Simulated scan of single mutants.
Amino acid sequence: MQTNLSNQKAKYNLPDFLVGDVVVLTDPASSNELHEIEAFQPAEYYWLVGGGIVHRKDIRTATVAELNAKRRLTSAEQALAEVS
Protein backbone atom coordinates (compact mmCIF):
# COMPACT_ATOMS: atom_id res chain seq x y z
CA MET A 1 0.00 0.00 0.00
CA GLN A 2 1.33 3.43 -0.93
CA THR A 3 1.28 6.31 1.54
CA ASN A 4 0.61 9.82 0.33
CA LEU A 5 3.06 11.90 2.36
CA SER A 6 1.24 15.17 1.60
CA ASN A 7 -1.71 13.92 3.65
CA GLN A 8 0.39 12.95 6.67
CA LYS A 9 0.46 15.08 9.84
CA ALA A 10 3.83 16.53 10.78
CA LYS A 11 5.54 14.98 13.78
CA TYR A 12 6.72 18.30 15.10
CA ASN A 13 5.03 21.62 15.78
CA LEU A 14 6.02 23.41 12.58
CA PRO A 15 5.47 27.18 12.37
CA ASP A 16 2.71 28.67 10.22
CA PHE A 17 5.00 31.55 9.19
CA LEU A 18 8.66 31.60 8.25
CA VAL A 19 11.35 34.09 9.18
CA GLY A 20 11.04 37.00 6.76
CA ASP A 21 7.32 36.56 6.08
CA VAL A 22 5.39 39.84 6.03
CA VAL A 23 2.25 39.79 8.17
CA VAL A 24 -0.45 42.11 9.48
CA LEU A 25 -2.28 42.04 12.79
CA THR A 26 -5.78 40.60 12.48
CA ASP A 27 -7.30 43.21 14.81
CA PRO A 28 -7.94 46.30 12.62
CA ALA A 29 -7.82 48.59 15.66
CA SER A 30 -4.29 47.46 16.56
CA SER A 31 -2.16 48.77 13.73
CA ASN A 32 -2.23 49.23 9.98
CA GLU A 33 1.51 48.59 9.65
CA LEU A 34 3.14 45.62 7.98
CA HIS A 35 5.35 43.49 10.22
CA GLU A 36 8.11 41.03 9.42
CA ILE A 37 8.57 37.73 11.26
CA GLU A 38 11.95 37.60 13.02
CA ALA A 39 11.69 34.25 14.81
CA PHE A 40 9.33 31.48 15.85
CA GLN A 41 8.88 30.91 19.57
CA PRO A 42 7.48 27.85 21.33
CA ALA A 43 3.73 27.65 21.93
CA GLU A 44 2.82 29.29 18.59
CA TYR A 45 4.27 32.74 19.25
CA TYR A 46 6.31 34.87 16.85
CA TRP A 47 8.85 37.63 17.38
CA LEU A 48 8.38 40.56 15.01
CA VAL A 49 11.25 42.63 13.60
CA GLY A 50 11.57 45.75 15.73
CA GLY A 51 10.23 44.06 18.84
CA GLY A 52 6.97 42.60 19.95
CA ILE A 53 5.68 39.09 20.28
CA VAL A 54 2.34 37.89 18.91
CA HIS A 55 0.34 34.68 18.90
CA ARG A 56 -0.23 33.03 15.52
CA LYS A 57 -3.99 33.64 15.79
CA ASP A 58 -3.37 37.41 15.98
CA ILE A 59 -1.57 37.70 12.62
CA ARG A 60 -2.14 36.76 9.01
CA THR A 61 -0.02 36.90 5.87
CA ALA A 62 -0.11 40.28 4.12
CA THR A 63 -1.85 40.24 0.75
CA VAL A 64 -0.22 41.41 -2.47
CA ALA A 65 -2.35 44.57 -2.39
CA GLU A 66 -1.14 45.30 1.15
CA LEU A 67 2.48 44.75 0.14
CA ASN A 68 2.01 47.20 -2.74
CA ALA A 69 0.31 49.75 -0.47
CA LYS A 70 2.93 49.18 2.25
CA ARG A 71 0.19 49.06 4.91
CA ARG A 72 -2.74 46.98 6.16
CA LEU A 73 -5.85 47.60 4.07
CA THR A 74 -9.36 48.00 5.45
CA SER A 75 -11.86 45.32 4.49
CA ALA A 76 -13.43 47.71 1.94
CA GLU A 77 -10.05 48.50 0.37
CA GLN A 78 -9.21 44.80 0.33
CA ALA A 79 -12.48 44.01 -1.47
CA LEU A 80 -11.72 46.65 -4.10
CA ALA A 81 -8.19 45.32 -4.56
CA GLU A 82 -9.51 41.79 -5.15
CA VAL A 83 -11.79 42.83 -8.02
CA SER A 84 -9.39 45.16 -9.80
Rank of each mutant, 00 (worst) to 15 (best):
N7P: 05
R72C: 06
T61N: 08
S30I: 05
R56T: 12
A79P: 06
S75W: 10
T61M: 13
H55G: 02
S75P: 05
V54S: 06
L34F: 01
E77K: 08
S31H: 07
V19P: 04
V83M: 06
L48H: 00
N7A: 11
E82L: 15
K57V: 11
V83F: 05
S6R: 06
Y46K: 00
P42F: 05
K11A: 15
S30F: 11
P15G: 09
N68C: 11
A10R: 05
L80A: 15
V19T: 12
G52E: 03
M1D: 09
D27S: 09
N4C: 07
D21V: 01
I53H: 07
N7I: 03
Y46F: 02
L48Y: 07
F40D: 11
G20P: 01
V64I: 13
D27H: 07
N13C: 14
D21L: 08
D16Q: 14
T3A: 08
P28N: 07
R60W: 02
A65P: 01
T61G: 11
S84G: 09
D16I: 11
L48C: 02
D27W: 04
V49K: 14
S31N: 00
T3Q: 11
T74F: 02
A81M: 00
A81G: 04
E77L: 02
M1Q: 06
T63V: 02
S75A: 13
Q8N: 05
I53W: 01
A39K: 09
W47H: 15
V19C: 10
W47P: 13
A10P: 07
S6N: 08
N32D: 13
L34N: 05
S31W: 01
N68Q: 10
S6P: 01
L48Q: 02
S6E: 12
D21P: 07
L67V: 10
S75G: 03
I37T: 03
H35Y: 13
K9Y: 09
R56S: 14
G52T: 01
Q41V: 13
K70C: 07
E33R: 15
S30M: 09
V54T: 10
S30V: 11
S6T: 09
E82Q: 12
S84N: 12
A43S: 13
A65Y: 00
G50M: 04
Q41S: 14
E38V: 08
G51V: 04
S31K: 05
R72I: 07
L67H: 12
E44H: 15
G20L: 03
L5R: 13
D21I: 03
G50A: 02
Y45K: 15
H35S: 07
V54L: 09
T3K: 04
Y46L: 01
H55C: 02
L80Q: 09
G52V: 03
D27I: 04
P42M: 08
Y46C: 00
Y45P: 05
